[in-house]
């Protein structure tokens, strides 16, 4: 696989070089993520390697500090609400977009995807200016609305991708066998695209849970999310409790990632 059998010596050399270079790049991609993990278990308040002595003191710190706990609770509630809203809206839109009769498909798609590419600060400032006068800043509802807008493109993309592999003859078969359209959707279509919808929901959850900038602009002390708490922490004085928070966020990301991988793998079986 690595090398074709007809490769010349020069080619072998360059190919080997490219392979090693790529592995180095992959190490560059992965290693920084895991630097924070040992530091969060260090007994010392300094970021030095090797870690002299391990302890759980920064985790005790984290879980005994009300601000961090509030942050986790706020992030979870916001992310769950965002997920519900974004998955519902995004799935419906994707179902519509899958129809060959959808009018102005390209333009609508371009609009639906735009929250992914518009600079986050612009979204944050715009929401701050717009939500302020109608009383939605410093409320959870405001944050959920803004996060939902940011999360829907992920749902639209994943569900659209799943629908593109869905055999529309399945729906036709169900209809021809006498199932009314709504039953056809619930009994035949939905079970076959559910993995795509759950993937989209996972993406939506992660998008909201990790989001900092909009939350910085829209939340007051009461709605402070975990990432906002972390961000202000790093700005003031970076300390090992932040490493514990980052490790917890990392663990959550890996958990969601594994869930998604298992989900998509099962689908291809």
């Amino acid at each position: 696989m690595w090398l074709p059998s007809y490769a010349t010596p020069t080619e072998r050399f360059f190919r080997t070089l490219v392979v090693f270079f790529s592995f180095a790049v992959l190490v560059f991609l992965i290693a920084p993520l895991f630097v924070i993990v040992p530091l969060s278990f260090s007994a010392d308040p300094f970021f030095t390697f090797p870690v002299p002595k391990y302890s759980l003191r920064w985790y005790y710190d984290f879980f005994s500090n009300e601000r961090w706990i509030t942050g986790i609770i706020n992030s979870t509630i916001t992310a769950v609400l965002t997920t519900i809203l974004a998955t519902t809206l995004g799935t419906m839109a994707a179902l519509g977009l899958a129809s060959p009769h959808f009018p102005w498909r390209r333009a609508v798609m371009a609009i639906l995807i735009s929250p992914m590419i518009i600079p986050i600060v612009i979204v944050a400032v715009g929401s701050y200016l717009f939500y302020g006068p109608i009383g939605l800043t410093n409320t959870r509802l405001g944050l959920v609305l803004a996060h939902t807008a940011l999360a829907t493109p992920f749902v639209v993309i994943t569900v659209t991708a799943t629908l593109s592999t869905y055999d529309t003859n399945l729906s036709r078969a169900a209809l021809s066998l006498g199932a009314p359209p709504l039953n056809t959707f619930l009994v035949v279509t939905l079970p076959n695209i559910i993995t795509g919808i759950i993937s989209g929901a996972i993406f939506a959850f992660a998008t909201s849970f990790d989001e900092v900038v909009v939350a910085l602009f829209l939340t007051g002390a009461e709605q402070r999310t975990l990432p906002v708490q972390m961000f202000s922490g790093i700005r003031d004085q970076i300390n090992p409790t932040i490493m514990a928070a980052a490790t917890i966020l990392l663990a959550l990301s890996i958990g969601l990632f594994v869930a998604l991988t298992l989900l998509t793998r099962k689908k291809t079986d």
Binding site: D167, N169, L170, R172, A173, A174, L175, S176, L177, G178, A179, P180, P181, T184, V188, P191, N192
Partner: peptide, 20 residues
């Protein structure tokens, strides 16, 4: 008349069996 009211047996290309 919509398809579900026609009472016609339909065998599709690639069968369209419900995989779940």
């Amino acid at each position: 008349l919509p398809p579900e009211k026609r009472n016609i047996g339909f065998v599709f290309q690639n069968y369209a069996l419900f995989p779940h």
